[in-house]
């Protein structure tokens, strides 16, 4: 469980998160809201990449921090940028991050096949199309089978077929104890399999709920 207590983040005079108070339970949760609503900031705060100006964020009761090896071992994050080394091939990137996460001789084939990158595995990340790069970023976030998956606009630049591969990869990764928080404008794609949703507006939660428990959440957009 991820708990955010009165979390505020400011960038100068701009309020990105405004006393956000919420709990993210295991499951796949969609994170929705208009541009500038604080979705990306929330993901960075949960990942520990950005320290809030006020409030605290905990995962299973412990404060999140990138310096906590136990925490980062369990987190997979793909932000706005791909987080890949452009001069390395897709396979070399994934191998590197697998090794850094402690995997000895990782078998990358299933992941590459699953996300539709097998035939591009020898291509340098820097020359991939935006859509392929996006898929490679998701693969990087999944390469160590994290318990918490944080994805920022994973459907950006993807056609329907590629988006379906990403959705499939998220669903196959998920098990009942795992948490995925997926920020997206593609609500329809995510609603097909997400367990719940969270709508942000101006750094505050507008609506939060489970799709099963709160039918009105179907109106998430």
């Amino acid at each position: 469980m991820i708990r955010l207590e009165q979390v505020s983040v400011f960038f100068g005079p701009t309020i990105a998160l405004d006393g956000l108070d919420t709990t993210i339970e295991p499951g796949i949760t969609g994170l929705f809201g208009p541009n500038g609503s604080g979705k990306s900031t929330l993901l960075r705060v949960v990942a520990g990449l950005l320290a809030p100006n006020a409030g605290r964020v905990t995962f299973e009761g412990s404060p999140v921090a990138t310096s906590d090896e136990g925490f980062v071992r369990r987190v997979g994050y793909a932000g706005h940028s791909a987080g890949l080394y452009s001069r390395l091939t897709v396979r070399e990137n994934l191998e590197l991050f697998a090794v850094l996460h402690g995997r000895v001789r990782p078998d990358l084939e299933p992941l590459l096949e699953q996300i539709g990158l097998a035939e591009h595995s020898a291509t340098r990340a820097g020359v991939l199309s935006a859509g392929l790069k996006q898929r490679a970023a998701v693969a990087r976030a999944l390469v160590h089978s994290p318990d918490v998956l944080l994805l920022d606009e994973p459907y950006a630049n993807l056609d329907d077929e590629a988006a379906a591969l990403v959705s499939c990869a998220i669903q196959e990764w998920w098990t009942p104890q795992r948490i995925a928080l997926v920020a997206t404008h593609g609500a329809k794609k995510l609603k097909a399999f997400a367990h719940g949703g969270l709508i942000l507006k101006r750094g505050r939660t507008v609506v939060q709920g489970s799709y099963r428990e709160r039918p009105e959440a179907e109106t998430f957009s």
Binding site: R44, A47, G48, L49, T66, S67, E69, G70, V72, R73, V75, Y77, G79, H80, S81, A82, G83, L84, Y85, S86, R87, F97, L100, H101, G102, A125, G126, K133, R140
Partner: peptide, 19 residues
């Protein structure tokens, strides 16, 4: 610079390796 190119620094900070 190689970390800045594609935002790889975030990914690097999220690996279980002492700084």
């Amino acid at each position: 610079e190689v970390e800045r190119e594609e935002g790889a620094l975030d990914a690097l900070l999220l690996v279980p390796l002492d700084r």
